[in-house]
Design a protein around this nucleic acid. Structure first.
Lengths: 344, 344
DNA sequence: GGTTAGCACTCGGGCTCCGGGAGTGCTAAA
DNA sequence: TTTAGCACTCCCGGAGCCCGAGTGCTAACC
């Protein structure tokens, strides 16, 4: 990226801010009046021509003002943006809402709602990646007719159950034995670790044919198989996106909403954000997904005990108020992390 | 409703079908050509003027063809409609998809997907009303630190758990006692009945101060309180609605989608369908909800052991292919009922 | 009396034309 | 290097126009 004169940078910033504010291509006259510089429109025209040559802005047609290109937005958010300090009241509201006693599913939904409310965009929060969750305890309960209810206690707020279809009926006491055994072996370990250990244990056990252990391990394997699959997200405020003209044509909206329902593509995109810490931004086509061509995605991972559990963020038009959105996403991620940490 | 001549009925039917097919106001010439009658356009014009006087059709503006009014649609579905026999392959597909071993939440989601796929509209299925579910069993598990995990086994496919915050810690054996007691007392009863019994038991017990029973009852009360609240639905294929021109303006869509997210209004509407058995149809403003003014809703309740558990159906433009949609909704309700019945 | 043909009329949609406004690029002067 | 001036371009909205589709009415027809 060739270095820009201070003035060019300033103009790009002013132009981008202006365009974000009211969605109209910005002309030289407007910018001259608006930008606080005492320069004539003509001068600004020259500078804008330069910016256009660099691919940072473009005009939708001859003789209209300029709008930022993706590259322009990129430079804007990377080097020009002065992020607003978040209003204390907003932070307070976030903190309050996320501190209500809730199971974590609800907590995430709340977080998503908060994001969409605060930014007037679509909020999105991925469900925790399960590998990093630790298994607190396993219980088995006999149900009628060769079915066993397995209860996976992951934390005091997260319990999952699944029904196993077994070969024969088991008595309560027999099941108790199994769960005791499993709890001894695996209690407190991470689910992914448990999974790995199970596999090796199973192999060993097959050799010396310890029936009881084998059954227990098998059951655990079945349960974990179910528990680990299927990552997912919660979404809120899709309808906010309908307010933006640039997304307002029905076919664009349709693609977008279908992607939301489909989930897999969006998830794939969000997965990429897990690794980087802090706020991450995809602008327009950068995401690599066509339905997001006219959208930007601002994300931040949330963590428990230093481990990234998932990602939250917002989706909106490229023309979004980054300086306002970024701190909100950032703060929400921090506060959600704190809420999840404090009550585990 | 004044009786209509056979010909007028026939014309209304032809007109409505034609309009449903291609969404354009239908003129006299078209109808004359189309309807199989050997009548001149002029005659048909006279007849249409009569229909207009009766409020069954209207023209969007002078000198355009006619379209059915809500009243016209009403007469169409009530007395003129010849419902198509459902293609066997469709039935087969429904039956297959709903027979996969799934927990009921998934089953309902599947049903909703099926509805939206088969009709190209939005499918909707309410979650079962909980009052009619029977309590199979209750278990309590001590968690760390004054928390107790309550497990409510409603059927072999439906298990719910909730975490109770208690006054003090309880031992596993103590909890075992409580659950035994509760299972004896309430096992197999309907949740709503259990709730009622709890209240009276609690009153009596307070008098003779049986600590153990009181604790157990209190716990059960807490659990049921959580379990009963919050009815809900699953929705699929909202995006299908975007294909219909008449819904395609963004603000209509927005209201609709917001109502979907809000849920309460839609639920309220669907609740009204629980009582009537068989397929029920709301056309346009009949629903009483403004956001559904240009929509029709076709619903049917689904049952287990003769008891209505919930409602499923589709939402689409008033101009929907009723003769195709109605049997699909009907069949899906039957097959879902069967699926739920067979594996309880 | 019901049915039809003919006719005048209405309205919406699509077309072109036109002028104004906003903005540009270029050139020449400060 | 900056600015003023100027010619040029393009979008947008409105006005005017015609065409097609459809209507209602009337008078003739069976």
């Amino acid at each position: 990226m060739p270095e820009l004169t201070e003035r060019a940078q300033f103009l790009l910033k002013a132009l981008t801010e202006r365009y974000i504010r009211d969605g109209q291509p910005v002309g030289s006259r407007t910018l001259a009046r608006d930008a606080g510089l005492t320069l004539s429109p003509a001068t600004i025209r020259n500078a804008m021509a330069d910016l256009e040559d660099l691919g940072l802005v473009r005009s939708p047609h001859t003789s209209s003002g300029r709008i930022p290109t993706v590259l322009g937005y990129r430079m804007f958010v990377d080097t020009l943006l002065s992020v607003q300090r978040l209003d204390d009241s907003v932070v307070e509201r976030l903190r309050e809402t996320l501190n209500i006693k809730k199971d974590s599913q609800n907590l995430l939904q709340k977080a998503s709602n908060l994001l969409s409310d605060a930014t007037r965009l679509a909020g999105i929060v991925t469900l925790p990646r399960r590998e990093h969750e630790a298994l607190q305890r396993v219980e088995f309960l006999p149900l009628s007719d060769k079915k066993v209810l397995a209860i996976l206690v992951i934390s005091d707020k997260e319990v999952r159950n699944s029904i196993l279809h077994t070969e024969r009926e088991y008595s309560a006491s027999e099941l108790q034995q199994y769960s005791n055994f499993l709890n001894e072996q695996f209690g407190g370990k991470e689910l992914s670790a448990v999974r790995a250990m199970l596999v090796s244990e199973l192999r060993e056990t097959r050799e010396n044919l310890n029936r009881m252990m084998a059954t227990a391990l098998n059951m655990a394997d079945q349960v974990l198989g179910e528990a680990e699959q299927g990552s997912d997200y919660v979404l809120a405020g899709q309808t906010n996106l309908m307010e933006f003209q640039e997304l307002c044509n029905v076919s664009t909206l349709r693609h977008l909403f279908e992607a939301f329902n489909e989930k897999s593509q969006i998830l794939h995109l969000l997965d990429q954000c897990v690794e980087n810490e802090g706020v991450q931004i995809f602008i327009g086509e950068e995401s690599g997904y066509q339905m997001l061509d006219e959208c930007s995605v601002v994300t931040a991972p949330y963590t428990v005990q230093g481990k990234v559990l998932g990602v939250l963020g917002v989706i909106g038009p490229t023309r979004m108020a980054y300086e306002r959105v970024i701190p909100i996403v950032d703060a929400t991620a921090r506060i959600l992390s704190a809420a999840l940490n404090s009550r585990d």
